[in-house]
Design a protein around this nucleic acid. Structure first.
Length: 205
DNA sequence: TAGTAGCA
DNA sequence: GCCT
């Protein structure tokens, strides 16, 4: 992969590389992610308030992000008790290309969005060190990504993230509220059954 | 409040 | 899209 290319666009201090991954790289990554899901099956997380999230998720790496009535946190094992699988090399390559960070990620969260899935506005703040960025990879159907402010409320900006796009949430943007408003069904043929995969990598400790 | 529904 |  190219070394530290310039981002295509920057939205609210979040750099976005459109089509950083070629179609061939996207296909290979999806194949790697199928291996992750086989070892650590997708589950439907429940928020601390007891509501089921519309995305299904799993993780790879040393820690995986989970939520249930006990709260949001990183855990060293899948809810089944099995250890999380290794982060695929294809995914790590993206981190090393765009993160600008020395340490490798300790957590790789894999979120699957069906046609109707959404993600409400939130901050990523379950990590110990906000100096490390969050790197996000989009695969499959396009998603409307909304970026807000350091506190709830106020004006927001949106951008469509398409298959192969990568963005980095770091620096001054690290704690911005953000979310996914909707998925555009049929916008990609990468996933035979449609939907979107979002892969996010983080340093957790 | 990593949620939802309702109205326009 | 805006509101909560």
């Amino acid at each position: 992969m190219k070394n530290s290319p310039e981002p295509t666009v920057v939205v609210r201090r979040i750099p976005v590389w459109k089509q950083l991954l070629s179609p061939e790289q996207q296909i290979a990554m999806v194949e790697d992610l199928r291996g992750v899901v086989k070892a650590a099956p997708l589950f439907s997380p429940v928020t601390p308030s007891g509501k089921e999230m519309s995305v299904r998720m799993t993780s790879a790496g040393k820690f995986g992000w989970v939520t249930d009535r006990r709260g949001y946190r990183y855990e060293p094992k899948h809810p089944s008790g099995a250890p999380w699988p290794e982060v695929p090399e294809s995914v790590l390559d993206v981190w090393r290309t765009v993160s600008g960070y020395d340490r490798d990620p300790e957590s790789c969260l894999v979120n699957f969005y069906g046609t109707d899935a959404k993600m409400g506005m939130h901050q990523d703040k379950d990590e110990a060190d906000f100096n490390a960025p969050v790197v996000s990879i989009s695969l499959g159907d396009a998603a409307l990504f909304r970026i807000g402010n350091l506190e709830r409320g106020g004006k927001t900006e949106s951008i469509w993230l398409e298959s192969g796009d990568v963005c980095v949430i770091g620096g001054e943007a690290r704690l911005l509220y953000h979310g996914i408003d909707r998925i555009r069904p049929g916008s990609s043929s990468l996933l035979p059954n449609g939907g979107r995969i979002n892969v996010t990598m983080r340093v957790v400790t």
